[in-house]
Amino acid sequence: MQEVKLRETDDFIKLGQALKKAGLEESGADAKEDIQAGLVKVNGEVDTRRGRKLVDGDIVSYNGQEFKVVK
């Protein structure tokens, strides 16, 4: 499973930013569309909030791929 690392000074990353950082979305606009369309799951549940704060241990699923947020 791929990992998305938080910066040392951060306690969270927003869902849209995490999708881009993981390389699963090209732009914030693409991420916003797919999140609002219900295509993204956080910890097994659909989340339609682009600004959802992801913390250490959260698992995101999108388009058959998964990544874990790590500190």
Results as ranks from 00 to 15, higher is better:
M1H: 04
M1N: 05
M1T: 11
V4E: 03
V4Y: 07
L6S: 00
L6T: 00
L6R: 03
L6Y: 01
R7G: 05
E8G: 01
E8A: 01
E8M: 00
T9E: 06
D10N: 07
D10R: 07
D10A: 09
D11C: 03
D11S: 14
D11F: 03
D11W: 05
D11I: 01
F12I: 00
F12P: 02
I13R: 12
I13A: 05
I13F: 10
K14C: 10
K14I: 01
L15K: 12
L15Q: 10
G16W: 02
G16R: 10
G16E: 01
G16L: 04
G16A: 13
Q17H: 09
A18M: 03
A18I: 00
A18Y: 04
A18Q: 04
L19N: 08
L19Q: 04
K20H: 02
K21E: 05
A22S: 11
A22V: 04
G23D: 06
L24Q: 08
L24N: 07
E25Y: 06
E25N: 07
E25K: 15
E26I: 08
E26F: 08
S27C: 08
S27A: 05
G28V: 06
G28I: 05
D30V: 08
D30C: 06
D30T: 05
A31Q: 06
E33M: 14
E33D: 10
D34F: 13
I35N: 13
I35K: 14
Q36M: 12
Q36D: 07
A37Y: 09
A37P: 01
G38L: 06
L39S: 11
L39A: 13
L39I: 00
V40L: 10
K41I: 07
V42W: 12
N43Y: 02
N43P: 03
E45V: 15
E45K: 15
V46C: 03
V46W: 02
V46N: 02
V46K: 14
D47S: 14
D47H: 12
D47W: 04
D47K: 15
T48Y: 00
T48Q: 13
R49F: 04
R49N: 10
R50V: 13
R50T: 11
G51R: 07
G51A: 14
R52A: 13
R52E: 09
R52Q: 12
K53R: 15
K53C: 01
K53G: 02
L54C: 10
L54M: 05
V55Q: 15
V55K: 15
V55W: 07
D56H: 15
D56W: 06
D56N: 15
G57F: 03
G57N: 07
G57D: 09
D58P: 06
I59Q: 14
I59K: 14
I59A: 13
V60R: 12
S61V: 02
S61W: 01
Y62P: 03
N63Y: 04
N63K: 14
N63I: 00
Q65Y: 04
F67R: 04
F67P: 04
F67C: 08
K68M: 14
K68A: 09
V69D: 08
V69Q: 13
V69Y: 11
V70T: 12
V70A: 10
K71E: 06
